[in-house]
């Protein structure tokens, strides 16, 4: 059973346990670093594929970053047979009900939105999470719209977007992120 406690043996035991634990963690960290990086990259690649028409280059390699409103947006240009087919923009907003929402928005060369995909969000299950195309048709209303004529704001704010019932904050945040992507594309 437990040994008597002296300052030396307490320090030594705790030190040894902390050392072993850190060693184990560092090993696992090094071992998982590559898979974790790959998972993140694969997720971005999949999202680019989801929001743009077929392409044959690797947009992730040609990625450029732009700063706007204090946020970093990433632009992924896509081409097929060396002709541009569109640009995927990784955009984000802090206006979600549960914090940050990150989106991938695909723009065609003529400026129209092709498709959108949610990269990550922390919205309420059952309400705000309907921004995800798997949960509701909310995000589909952006497809094929030209931001020059389609006002990217919810109807309550005088825009053209139908908000999700009982999740206006999430809908507004979604519009905010798309709007930011549009601003970048315009420049």
């Amino acid at each position: 059973m437990a040994k008597a406690s002296t300052l030396t043996n307490m320090t030594v035991t705790l030190g040894a346990i902390a050392f072993l634990a850190s060693a184990m963690l560092s090993a696992v960290f090094v071992f998982t670093a590559e898979p974790i990086r790959k998972v993140a990259a694969a997720k971005v690649d999949r999202a680019i594929g989801d929001v743009l028409p077929p392409f044959d280059n690797s947009p992730a390699i040609e990625m450029t970053e732009t700063k706007i409103d204090g946020r970093t947006l990433r632009l992924y240009p896509a081409r097929k047979d060396s002709r541009p087919v569109g640009i995927a923009v990784e955009t984000s907003t802090g206006g979600g009900f549960g914090g940050e929402i990150r989106l991938m928005v695909g723009f065609l060369p003529d400026g129209r939105i092709y498709k959108t995909a949610v990269l990550s969000h922390a919205e309420t299950p059952g309400l705000g999470d309907k921004i995800d195309a798997r949960r509701s048709t909310f995000s589909l209303q952006f497809e094929g719209k030209d931001p020059a004529t389609f006002n990217l704001a919810v109807r309550q704010d005088g825009g053209d977007v139908d908000a999700i019932t009982a999740a206006t904050i999430s809908s507004r945040a979604f519009c905010d992120a798309v709007e930011r992507a549009k601003k970048v594309i315009r420049n």
Partner: peptide, 16 residues
């Protein structure tokens, strides 16, 4: 467990 002094038992377990 047998090698851990009684007084630092809980912190040791928490680290593990």
């Amino acid at each position: 467990a047998a090698h851990i002094p009684g007084k630092v038992r809980i912190p040791a377990y928490i680290v593990i």
